[in-house]
Amino acid sequence: MFDPPRFVAARTLNGSREAACHLNALKAVDAWGGEAVTGWAIWQWQKVMLQAEHHCVWKDVSGRLFDVTPQRCGEAKIVFCVDSSASFDPSGRSRRDNVRKNISDMPEVDSLISLEAAKRKLMMSDCWFEGDQLVCRYDEIAVAALQDNIELLTSVIVERVGIWPA
């Protein structure tokens, strides 16, 4: 079940890696107790799109939540929704895609959302963990073509709204 969104402070662990939130949260549990909590990090591209990213944070022994995963832009806090049904597959074979919502009136955003979903599906179709490293096999040429189209559409959208995605 979803909890209401809330701000969660960042507290990056030494040795934490971007895009490895579940493993980072489990390392925090091993180091300090508490538990790993799954849910969704909510991101907004102002006037364009909302995106919910499957994410995991650490709950300390007193019940406070912390994001122990370094974020690309160095955020001091994130918006997070606890979702106990958003489980994590430790084998890496089953990965959840982001949930994206167009909040504009631009059809280009719907196209961008479709391209992002296609790229994610292609990249995550054959993945597994080797130790704590996620390994994926995919068609790099197809992913590069999708990425080129994503970048083109992103620039068209930025030109219309004047705001880059965070």
Rank of each mutant, 00 (worst) to 15 (best):
G74L: 10
E75C: 04
L50V: 05
R93E: 14
N14E: 15
N14M: 03
I78W: 07
L50P: 03
Q46D: 10
V8A: 08
V8Y: 05
V37T: 08
P90Q: 09
A31F: 08
S87T: 15
G74Q: 13
E53P: 04
M49R: 13
A10E: 02
F66D: 01
D60P: 02
A52T: 01
I42G: 01
L65E: 05
V79W: 09
G92N: 11
A20W: 02
F80N: 03
F80I: 01
G34F: 05
V57T: 09
V79S: 13
A19C: 07
V29F: 08
V61M: 13
S94P: 01
H55G: 02
V79E: 05
A76S: 14
I78T: 10
G63S: 09
W40A: 06
T12L: 04
G74H: 13
N98D: 13
R95H: 12
C56S: 14
H54E: 02
G34Q: 02
P70H: 13
G34E: 03
V37K: 05
E18R: 15
F88D: 06
K47W: 14
V8W: 08
W40T: 07
V37H: 05
I78Q: 06
V8M: 04
S94T: 12
C81S: 15
R72P: 06
C56N: 05
N14H: 13
V48K: 08
A20S: 12
H22T: 00
C73P: 00
C81M: 15
G15D: 13
K59S: 13
R6Q: 15
R93G: 12
D83C: 10
N14Q: 14
G92K: 12
E53L: 08
R17H: 13
A86Q: 14
A25P: 06
V29K: 01
R64K: 15
D67K: 05
Q51V: 01
Q44L: 07
M49G: 01
D60H: 06
S84V: 12
A25I: 02
N14I: 00
R11C: 08
L23F: 08
K77W: 05
D30W: 07
T69Y: 11
C81G: 08
L26V: 01
F80R: 06
R17L: 12
D83V: 04
G92D: 12
A20Q: 11
S84D: 14
S87F: 11
V68D: 03
A31Y: 11
